[in-house]
Design a protein around this nucleic acid. Structure first.
Lengths: 195, 195
DNA sequence: GTTTATTCCTACCACTGGTATGTTTGCCGG
DNA sequence: CCGGCAAACATACCAGTGGTAGGAATAAAC
């Protein structure tokens, strides 16, 4: 086979991404490219035409998952009654995030493998770009409402983000008798009582 | 070279472990065995005589680091005035943990690479064995003191563990203007106000 | 209708973790 | 004191990995 329609090319690209997501979700980053292209019905030539290397492929899978979660979270946050209430928006977004964390692909690829694969800079930057901004805005909002001194905005941002991450992990793992609702309730209590 | 004294053997074993820790700390699990044995002054034959495979080598490095941190944390917890106060013991242990998290080898090997390398079961189990037990004991203690209902012991254990993990991460990463002291203060405030 | 550039395949490469086998020699029973 | 076993390595090698080079076919632009 050779030159196809741009539409066909997009199809193979998506097939590669789908297969890659499945394999990364099951075997982590160590999933072999041979298996990925085999299940996608193409050869390595196609893969390396669409992606410069394995890491870029993983990054794309990672980004797609994050984007999906982020869009749903934003949509849910927009439904909050008061559009100028970052606190409620954070709670709404957190609810969505905790649900996604229970999904095996999101759990394994984004939360589990993401850090070590993308490296500390890459992962932390992307993570901060997507989640931390909302968290930080909410912390500033709470500080303005005299919940706690502004000097603690920084630490509390890290703290809140950590709790969301950790709950995501625990939910993704499945045990601990933890459900998204229980986690969300505890999250809110903790948040409300920050001083 | 060939058969040496048992003492000599232990020396090469330690040399391999030291070199492995250095390389794993810098390059993560993808550090090559060739480089590790080269810097240790031995060959791969020696490595595979002492360790069954690369993962076992990593596990040993991981365990040694965890053991070092755990021993120091326990020692510090034992210095607490009231020996029947898990709350204060947790705070003391947390202080030690946060300090270790700022050390690059501990950060990279235990916190960063550990999860994806050892896998969810291996990492979570070991992590829980070392840290979670103390956290859980403290949560039960606080529940008994009517800080919050016993039904929340489980969630809060996960929550507290997550905060420690996340602070460790942020400290290890170095930025955010975060110091062990600031993190520890925020940790205590959060803990004290759990309902 | 010729050219061009995209899309993909095949063949190949350097390197990796891991193995099989060989070699030296401390050590222990007789 | 000494023969043999096994510990403690070294050497040579292998299957599989991510990645590359080059070519073939053809959709698309002119």
């Amino acid at each position: 086979m050779a030159r196809r329609t741009a539409e066909d090319a997009e199809k193979t690209r998506l097939a590669i991404l789908a297969s890659a997501q499945a394999h990364f979700a099951r075997d982590g980053f160590k999933a072999s490219l041979a298996d990925i292209v085999s299940d996608a019905g193409v050869t390595k030539g196609a893969l390396f035409h669409h992606f410069p290397n394995k890491l870029a492929l993983f990054q794309q899978v990672w980004t797609d998952l994050q984007k999906g979660m982020d869009e749903e979270a934003r949509a849910e946050a927009r439904k909050v009654i008061d559009p100028n209430d970052p606190y409620s928006q954070l709670l709404a977004g957190a609810k969505v995030y905790l649900k996604w964390a229970a999904r095996p692909e999101y759990y394994r690829i984004v939360l589990f493998e993401g850090p070590s694969v993308l490296g500390m800079q890459g992962w932390y930057e992307s993570d901060r770009d997507i989640g931390q901004r909302n968290v930080r805005r909410s912390m500033e909002f709470m500080a303005d409402k005299r919940c706690f001194p502004r000097s603690r905005i920084n630490v509390y941002s890290v703290l809140v983000q950590s709790v969301l991450n950790g709950f995501g992990f625990a939910l993704g793992k499945g045990e601990d008798g933890l459900t998204p609702d229980v986690a969300h309730e505890a999250f809110e209590i903790m948040l409300r009582n920050l001083r």
